[in-house]
Each structure stands twice: as structure tokens, then as C-alpha cells.
Amino acid sequence: MRTDKLIDILSTNVEPVKPGLLEKTLAWAVVVGGTTAFCLMLATVGARREILNGSELGFFALKIGWTLSLILIGYLLLTKLIRPVQTGRKLVAVISFSFLAVAVAGAVALIGSADRRIIILGTQWVTCALCIPLFATVPFILLIWALRKGAPTNLKRTGAIAGLVAGALGAMTYAFHCPDDFLPFLAIWYGGLIALCAFIGAKFGPRLLRW
């Protein structure tokens, strides 16, 4: 086929394009994915009852705050990565810095403590390690679906950030159940599992997001 012919085909009946469609699709994926994960949490492990008690509230807010900030930064990053022109290096740096900060805080708390076993493993590390990836599954699928509507060109990084946002959604949801309020626990299990989700995303991104 000659290119002229193709151009004729492409420019017959050109539909107008509304701006902001990609952002809406991504936001939808995050919200629906998060809601599904929350329902899954309620249906399996259930929410912790004493969340609203004074002393636990602070640590609960820390878990939610950190994971929520990862979700928001990751979402912003995805709205950039979903377009062909690659930017967003600064946001990647912000994310790395926030991981580093949590890791340092965890290490400091570890040094200053006598009973290390409980603050590393908590009471439910197995549940945590199973639940976060499980809760992250639906958000990850929805995010990949949303990203495929765009045109990402850095597939590894886009996949990694999709995994990170999904992992953070899973972790935020798990925080409603999690009875372990220790900084080292947060750094190792939450941080490690979110990083694992990002790694899986980077691994499969090139295959899942190709266009």
C-alpha cells in the first residue's frame, strides 16, 4: 500500500479528541483497584478494631501516610510515563528518597531497641507477606490495562512504577488490618514488599505494555 492511501484512510472522518482522558483512566484504575483491594481485605483478614484508639492511631496514620504518598507520587509519574516523551526523573528520585528515609528510620529504631525479634517479625509477618502482594494484584492488572491505552516508551520504568503503585495500594489496604506497629517492621515488610511489586512490574512491563 502506498503511504498516500494510508494517509487518506487515516484522515477520513477524524474524530475530535478530548484532553485529560488518560489521567481519568489512570485515576479510575487506582480508585477501583484500591476499593477492590479494600473489599478483599475485609473479606479475608478483616480490619483491626482498635485502629481509632489514641496510641495506635499515630502509627496507623504513619503507615497510611507513607503508602498514600507513594501512591500519589506514583500516579503523577504514571501520567507522565504513559505519554511517549519521557520525563519524571525527579519523581523517581523523590520515591527513592522516601524509601531510604523509611529504611534509615527502621535501622535507627532497630539499634535503639533491646527486643529485636518482635520489632522485625512483628506478630503477623507471614500474613503481611502474603496479603500485600495479593491485595496488589487487582490494582496492578487495572493499571496495566490503563497504561495500555496510552503510549509508554520506557516500558521497564513504567512497569516498575505500576508495580510500585499497586504494591503501595496493597500495603495501604493491609495497614487497616496490620497489628504490628514497629518502624523496622514497616521498613522491611512494607518497604520490601512494595519494592518486590515494583521489581515484578519492571520484569513484566516490557511484555505487558508493548504496543
Binding site: 500500500m1 494510508l6 503510549a151
Partner: peptide, 30 residues
């Protein structure tokens, strides 16, 4: 032809506040 089709079917990924040439170039390079 592949890039022309991509430019057409993915034109919603062009941000009107940005330059066009880098956007097309990124697609071509990809």
C-alpha cells in the same frame, strides 16, 4: 506507515502544552 498509524491512533497521548516534534520522535524511536 507504522508510525503514522501510531501517531493517529495514539494522538490522545499528545499533551497540547508540549512541543510536538519530540513526541513524534519518541514514537519513531520506540
Amino acid at each position: 506507515q507504522e508510525v503514522l498509524i501510531a501517531v493517529h491512533t495514539r494522538r490522545h497521548t499528545y499533551d497540547r502544552s508540549q512541543l510536538l516534534t519530540p513526541w513524534v520522535y519518541a514514537i519513531a524511536r520506540y
